[in-house]
Structures are given as structure tokens and as C-alpha cells.
Design a protein around this nucleic acid. Sequence first.
DNA 1: TTGTTTGCAAAAAGTTTGCATAATC
DNA 2: GATTATGCAAACTTTTTGCAAACAA
Lengths: 151, 151
Amino acid sequence: MRALADCRDFTSAQELYALLLAGDHAIGLTTVYRALRELEADGGVDVVREGTGGRLYRLRLADGHRHYLMCRDCGRSRPVDSEAVEEWASRIAADTGFTAVEHTVELTGVCTDCLRCADACRPSSGDEGDERPCHWDRAPDPRDRARSCAS
Amino acid sequence: MRALADCRDFTSAQELYALLLAGDHAIGLTTVYRALRELEADGGVDVVREGTGGRLYRLRLADGHRHYLMCRDCGRSRPVDSEAVEEWASRIAADTGFTAVEHTVELTGVCTDCLRCADACRPSSGDEGDERPCHWDRAPDPRDRARSCAS
DNA sequence: TTGTTTGCAAAAAGTTTGCATAATC
DNA sequence: GATTATGCAAACTTTTTGCAAACAA
């Protein structure tokens, strides 16, 4: 849980496992999965699914269930105001007569930092020597999410 | 595509493959996956993810991108009015400055039919001889979605 | 003949489970 | 001593890829 709190963004079980190992914590992958599953059941984490089917976990904020907007490039996420969706979901439940209605909402985009990065070093000419952090040339794999593009 | 149109609910690649084989169509699983991937890229299908990470596909209605409310018990889905979420997503995009904002929304619940079924044959006493279709005793595995509980 | 489509088998990737060991009460 | 937690290895599921055969232009 401490490790999960340290990475303040959505993190996969495997990432968390690697982080724990790197931090000199002897732990098994199974234990990480089990702990995350329990946390999920207890509502201690918000969960989001990445394109490849994996799950990403983020420690739930004190104020409960939230939705997030995540940058597809750097992976950073921020909670967003989601009253409107909550109300919408309740209304659907009421209108249709469905019970125990649950919703998952995933919002992704490209954050302003990453957009700036992309603009700055787009494949125009040879300005690769630019000292600005940039990951334009990274693989577009969501698992490669790097947090290097500081604003 | 015809097979996909026939099952009017969200269907997995494997299910579709099985259906095609059962319908005497010689086809390979790979081809099914490839076709679904192309359909997804072309926007020809709506996609939701099931709990285990699998993808479910449903031929997109003529009026374009929709969201659905799916019964966790019988698997039947119905399009819902989702203007509110679309507007909400646009507003988030505008407020945060994120570009290329995409959203996925999954709504699940228990439909009135399945609720009735559950109520009718709940483990109270020995009314198992009831002729009413019921799947109360089914495994709660989302892949077992049966469409047997006709209203 | 050149290029595209197909499908089998094998590989990937992520997650869960069996089971024996270690820790805890 | 009994119960729970741990972790390795193996199983499992879903999806993708390598590659050769079939088909099409």
C-alpha cells in the first residue's frame, strides 16, 4: 500500500511488483495480485483497464470513488469532476428499471505537456539535440508510460 | 458480419468463432480476430471490456457511436441515451486542455427479467419444479451469459 | 506472377491456482 | 498446534504473430 501510494498514478500489478523489488522488498508477484484484488473488493483503489486488457490501480482518494482523465502519452492521471456521469448513471438505472447498476468510465487524452513536447520535436528537422525532455520517438505502447516530460 | 449481426448483443471473438463453426462456416479464429480488429478500427462495432479482460463486440447501430446498458446476468444489452456523458466528456476536454480526448463507458446492472427470475426461485424452499425459466443457479461467470430468461 | 487473404500452430502477456513452506496467533 | 499468509511454478485465457498454403488480380 505504501508503494502504491508512492506512485501517485495508475499502476499495473507488474509495475508495482517491479517497484517493490527495486525497493529491496522481498515479495512475490502472487502477493501483489492478491493484495490488489482485495483492495479492489474493499473499494480501496480505483481501477482502470488499459488497451491490452491489463488492469491499472490507483489508491482511492479520501473522498471516495472518482473518475480520472489519463494522458495516453505520459500516463499521468488527474481526477475529474464527475457529478454529471454519476447523475446520468442513476437516471439510466431509474429509467430502465435495472438494479445494481454499476458504471466504469475511462477518459484518456493527450495532456498539454505532452502535446507541447510533440509539437516541439516533431519529425521536421534535426533538432534532436534539444534539451527539452521529449518522448516523441517513444513507442506508443501504453505500458511504456514514462513520466519524464515534466512541464 | 452477418454472424455478428445475428447475435444482437455484445459477443466475444471466441463466441463468434464458435457460432460460425456451428453454422458450418469454415473459418479460423485468427480471421475472426482480424476482422473484428478492422471493424473496430473502422468504427463498425462498439466495444466493451468484460471483467476478465476480454473484448465484446456489437455491430454499431446506424446512428453511430452509442453506449449500452448490459445485464450482468443474461448479457442482453440495450443502447441508452448518452448525450449527457458526451457533453461531460467534451467539457472535461475543454476544461483541462487535453486533446484527442476519448472515453469508454460501461454500464452494467441486472435487468428486470433477471431480477424477477432471481426473486421467483431464490433459495427459499423447494420450488425448483417451477416451469418459469430461471438461471439463478448459474455460475456468475460473465462468459456464461445465457439468453434463456425470456420475459 | 505478384500480391493479398487465410488458418494452423506457437508465442505473448496478464492473471489465477495448486501446493508446500514460512510466519503468526 | 492451528490458522493464515507467502511465493514459486505451472495452468489458464485471450489475443497476436510467424509462416506456409490457398486464393485473387
